[in-house]
């Protein structure tokens, strides 16, 4: 079953490897993965869709939360969230079909981002199932090339971000003994 995971991670070399390594070590197949910087350039947001047996979903989240570079891992599979996917599509269209294609594109809310004598380039966003439908419809009009972004997901609930404070260490400044962090 597909699990949707949203991660807030430190934007550091190796962060992505740690997360995907955790999944591949358990032989889980990643369906899609997107990463981009957040407003804070030190952090990145990842959305991962991965095939995990339902009873192991919480274990995956716990293991991800153990990674030092992960600030927060959240399971969005069953929680209120919006999930979107983008498709870029090149479609070869004879003149006779063009009006019909534009009509279909309008119905699905897709935009023409390029056009030529060959045909169109279209951009569509939507939830993944809706995009599947749109792509199916377009295949009826001839040869298409499709590239999809993979899902990006945002939770509709605010979840409190628990971060650990700095810890005295290294003896440079003889402060109090370190005493880690927080209670739950």
């Amino acid at each position: 079953m597909l699990q949707i995971i949203s991660l807030l991670v430190e934007n550091k070399p190796g962060s992505l490897m740690r997360i995907t390594g955790l999944l591949s070590a358990r032989a889980y197949n990643i369906e899609s993965l997107t990463v981009a910087r957040t407003l804070d350039p030190e952090l990145s947001r990842m959305s991962i869709v991965v095939d995990v047996e339902p009873h192991l979903r919480s274990q995956v989240i716990k293991q991800m939360n153990k990674l030092i570079n992960v600030l927060q891992a959240t399971d969005l599979t069953d929680s209120p969230a919006v999930c979107r996917d983008m498709a870029l599509m090149r479609i070869k269209a004879p003149l006779a079909n063009r009006t019909a294609i534009l009509k279909e594109a309008e119905i699905f809310g897709a935009r023409v981002v390029d056009q030529s004598t060959e045909g169109f380039a279209l951009e569509a966003t939507g939830d993944p199932e809706k995009l599947d439908e749109f792509i199916d419809v377009m295949r009826g009009y001839g040869d298409i090339d499709v590239i999809r972004s993979g899902s990006v997901a945002v939770s509709l609930e605010t979840k409190k971000l628990r971060l650990s404070p700095p810890v005295p260490r290294g003896g440079g400044n003889p402060a109090r003994e370190e005493e880690p962090v927080e209670s739950k």
Binding site: N69, V70, L71, P166, R169, G172
Partner: peptide, 17 residues
């Protein structure tokens, strides 16, 4: 010398509930 380190994502829960 370093006087402190900061690992915001390293969550250690020490006190039990």
């Amino acid at each position: 010398p370093v006087s402190s380190i900061h690992l915001p994502g390293y969550k250690v829960i020490v006190e039990g509930h």
